Amino acid sequence: MGHTLIIKNMVCARCKSTIVDLLERHGLDIESIALGKVVVKQDFNPKYDVIKSELKDLGFELIEDESKALIELIKVLVIQFISENTSEPIISKITQAIGKNDSAISKLFSKSEGLTLEKYIINLKIEKVKEYIQLNQLNFSEIAYQLNYNNSSHLAKQFKSVTGMSMTHYKKLQDWDRKALDQIV
């Protein structure tokens, strides 16, 4: 049976690749890897401090506290569910995946992050909107559909509320101020 590592800020395929390289350099065999979680086949305790330090140097953090690990799992799930473009509410999908009720998850998240889970989801969606605008492949209605908004008007209001500007104004700026997913809290 493997040993599980919960890793903060592991939010994309490039992150996974970087972590695989680091662990393999230390002679660890990876049983499985997913965003925020790596299972290694052997004991890594002798190299724990070195791996923890090298992860930190790369912008990651090895999570040891159970509640922090749950928060990281929630963040990873939000990122995955936003990408899936599902019609089911993200918080419902999180509660199903974790097996806790939405009230408990929301309270834990708010207490830990100083931000409601709903606001965190909105902030991530807005960053995704910025990405779509920058790519210039979808119109505003298509972006709204892609991110499961009822309509582009709802998205436009939320975008302006979060950024202080309209999507059209943001698109014209061409000086896009986007946040990395691991920097949103």
Rank of each mutant, 00 (worst) to 15 (best):
H3S: 07
I6Y: 06
R14L: 11
T18G: 06
T18S: 13
I19A: 01
D21P: 01
D21V: 08
R25A: 09
G27S: 08
E31S: 13
V38C: 04
V39R: 07
N45E: 11
L55M: 10
G59C: 07
E61Q: 12
E64V: 12
E64K: 14
E64I: 13
D65A: 09
L77T: 00
I79T: 06
Q80E: 13
F81E: 04
N85C: 10
T86C: 09
S92T: 04
I94F: 03
D102N: 11
I105D: 04
K107E: 11
T116V: 09
N123P: 03
L124P: 01
L124A: 05
V129N: 03
Q134P: 00
Q134I: 14
L135F: 12
L135N: 13
L135C: 07
L135P: 03
L135T: 11
N136C: 08
E142T: 07
A144R: 06
Q146I: 01
N148W: 00
N148D: 06
Y149H: 01
N150Y: 14
N150L: 12
H154P: 00
L155E: 01
K157D: 10
Q158F: 02
K160N: 14
T163M: 15
S166W: 03
H169I: 15
H169Y: 11
L173G: 15
L173Y: 04
L181A: 09
